[in-house]
């Protein structure tokens, strides 16, 4: 900026304060409301004077609480189970995506091989495929084609163990959702990690190879530790998508594998919205991403700029 505007005027600070209020305000509003009773939210005489209560959280988490919440006669919201599903799916798919994606990125950066250009172009193109486009085929495939025959050896064994009728399909299992999340996130992870792997000095890898390390040892012991910042950024973005995704999970999950976003949307569309409880569930869903943002904003920004500017 030029010299005259360098001194920061009060108006400038006012703009900044306004911006901060605008970006964080809605989140704080939700946080505050999640501690209010519905009566307080609806009457809403004033925003700040109310009796804080954890009743909304008790209602939401009633299936995992060790005690019986007072005013609740029936535990309708199975939020705890959904939270567990979300965690399992997001963590496993993030870990898998990172391992598989970093290996592929390494191959694309460091080796010349047949089909390399095709792979790299395909990766770039499938990056833009929206989840909504995958909805129809994935629903069809996961329910009808990716199945094990119930009379077959493995399928029969699974049926005997878990019960149920019909063939054993990917739909309705954690694995089914994890597979599609890994596939969906791979192009992005490969893309982002390429720009980090390029920066690893070749001499290090060659030194390790001279010392007798095989290609996999070189990769896991030399390259991976050097691209930790890139891995962190990629992990956050992958986790965020897997944790927040609604559409595909809602098509693929059954009663026992519902994730948190599905639960929230289902409760939202009911006629009488219980704002307090909904806000509490929303808050619980938002907490992991908020924690990431607070502690790893530098990695997030690095990842964002690496992913886009290289675009």
């Amino acid at each position: 900026m030029s010299a005259p505007t360098q001194k920061n005027s009060p108006a400038f600070f006012a703009v900044i304060v306004l911006l901060v209020i605008m970006s964080v305000g809605p989140v704080i509003l939700m946080f505050v409301n999640s501690f209010k009773l519905d009566v307080d939210i609806i009457s809403g005489t004033s925003g700040l004077i109310f009796m804080p209560t954890i009743q909304n959280y008790e209602t939401a988490l009633c299936d995992v609480l060790w005690y019986e919440p007072e005013p609740l006669d029936f535990c309708a919201l199975k939020f705890g189970g959904a939270f567990k599903n979300s965690l399992i799916i997001a963590l496993i798919s993030t870990a898998l995506t990172l391992v598989i994606g970093s290996m592929a990125a390494y191959a694309l950066v460091r080796f010349r091989f047949m089909g390399r250009d095709t792979v790299s172009a395909t990766t770039l193109m499938v990056r833009m495929v929206p989840p909504a486009v995958l909805l129809v085929p994935v629903f069809g495939l996961w329910n009808n084609e990716f199945c094990l025959d119930r009379d077959g050896l493995i399928g029969g064994a699974i049926r005997d163990m878990f019960g149920g009728r019909g063939d054993v399909c990917l739909a309705g299992t954690h694995t089914g959702i994890i597979v599609i999340y890994v596939a969906m996130n791979l192009p992005f992870v490969i893309w982002i990690l390429q720009s980090f792997i390029v920066q690893v000095p070749r001499s290090l890898e060659e030194a390790a190879r001279v010392d007798g390390a095989g290609p996999f040892q070189v990769f896991f012991k030399v390259v991976l530790p050097l691209i930790k910042p890139g891995l962190a950024a990629a992990a956050i973005f992958t986790f965020r998508i897997a944790w927040n995704e609604y559409l595909l999970a809602s098509a693929l999950s059954d009663r026992n594998t519902k994730t948190v976003p599905i639960l929230i949307v289902n409760n939202m569309s009911e006629f009488n919205v219980e704002w307090g409880v909904i806000m509490a569930t929303g808050m619980l869903l938002a907490i992991p991403p908020i924690i990431f943002t607070l502690f790893a904003s530098r990695q997030i920004i690095t990842g964002m700029t690496a992913g886009a500017v290289k675009g």
């Binding site: 989140v27 965020r240 609604y246 929230i264 806000m279």
Partner: peptide, 14 residues
């Protein structure tokens, strides 16, 4: 960057 990281479902809710 907080708004970007929060689930779209939660953004809709707020």
């Amino acid at each position: 960057i907080l708004p970007m990281m929060i689930a779209p479902v939660v953004v809709g809710l707020m």
